[in-house]
Amino acid sequence: MDKDFVKPTEAQLKARRKRSIALAIALAAFVVIVYIGSLAKLGPSLFDRAM
């Protein structure tokens, strides 16, 4: 099957890079929020459990 590659323009590449960075920051923030929130919700006893 013949395939053609679509070459992104400079503006598209720049926009994609910015979106990737924003998504990475948002996901990292969400992880931190869930981690801190879990600690606040469940308390220090969260770590005091039998393995």
Partner: peptide, 10 residues
């Protein structure tokens, strides 16, 4: 199409 949306658009 390839998106040109910036984070600001979202």
């Amino acid at each position: 199409r390839l998106s040109e949306a910036a984070p600001g658009d979202f």
